[in-house]
Design a protein around this nucleic acid. Structure first.
Lengths: 146, 146
DNA sequence: TATTGTTATACTCTATAACTATA
DNA sequence: TATAGTTATAGAGTATAACAATA
């Protein structure tokens, strides 16, 4: 459903965002990674964290994260270990192989962005960033009609 | 998965677009319509067309369109009739009630856009539109890695 | 034989609730 | 009893293929 039914800015932003997301996800998959696995590795890159905090940071349900981490762990890209201070907790950490995969992913995302925004100057890209930052996307600001 | 894993413009556009889409879909639902039903009515507003052409315009599989039209027809918002010239074809047309629902939807979408872009001046909104129009989203321009 | 619309099937994604082990 | 992680189940959405009617 890509054809614009009107010239409304909201539709334009939504559709361009969707297509941009599809292009980015394709780039995330270059290392053979599921997009959500790549996103998880990005969250883990700065440092290890508990599985619960990771789920909160990614705004996914903890039960969904289980499958993602199972996959990452089976591929040797991340590791879970028990927290000695609280044995209920899992400390999740990216591995060296995971960091390597992330570097390849990062290169691919950079390439995708050059494709997406190649017609814009650096200054124009900065303007776009500034305008997008000022779009109000507070989910609490509206009543959900669906 | 809303937290930005980096300050990349591609992620920003993708996430803002996704949230904008969610806000727009909520507005589409104000008339009790499923978002895709509202989108279908928008496509039909300019004039009747064949079911096949409608599916092509919306870039959905014809088999998906069947359920949407069943729903719209049961609610009296659209009608299907056989094309006398080719009895395989269905001519799909919006009803007067459908046009009324569409007017209510349009009002709600306008309200959503005032919320989303209320912090931007008219000129800034025009700049945003111009920049978004120049983002390259040609799906054929990249190899799919997923 | 090809085309239009329909139905059936399967697969992914997501949301929820139960379950375990630890606290 | 509450919490962290896991498992199971169901629902929505989507993609594909088979099908009936017509050309």
């Amino acid at each position: 459903m890509a054809a614009l039914p009107s010239d409304r800015l909201g539709f334009l932003l939504s559709f361009r965002g969707e297509l941009t997301g599809a292009r980015i996800r394709a780039a995330l998959g270059v290392a053979g990674l599921h997009p959500r696995s790549a996103m998880t590795l990005m969250q883990l890159a700065p440092g290890a964290m508990s599985q619960r905090d990771l789920a909160a940071a990614m705004e996914v349900d903890p039960s969904q994260l289980v499958a993602i981490l199972n996959e990452l762990e089976s591929e040797g890209l991340a590791e879970r270990r028990r927290d000695p201070a609280d044995r209920r907790r899992h400390i999740v950490e990216i591995t060296e192989a995971g960091a390597g995969a992330l570097r390849r992913v990062d290169t691919a995302v950079g390439e995708a962005e050059r494709e997406l925004f190649g017609d814009l100057t650096e200054a124009e890209q900065a303007v776009l960033r500034g305008l997008l930052d000022r779009v109000v996307v507070d989910p609490a600001a509206h009543a959900c009609g669906e």
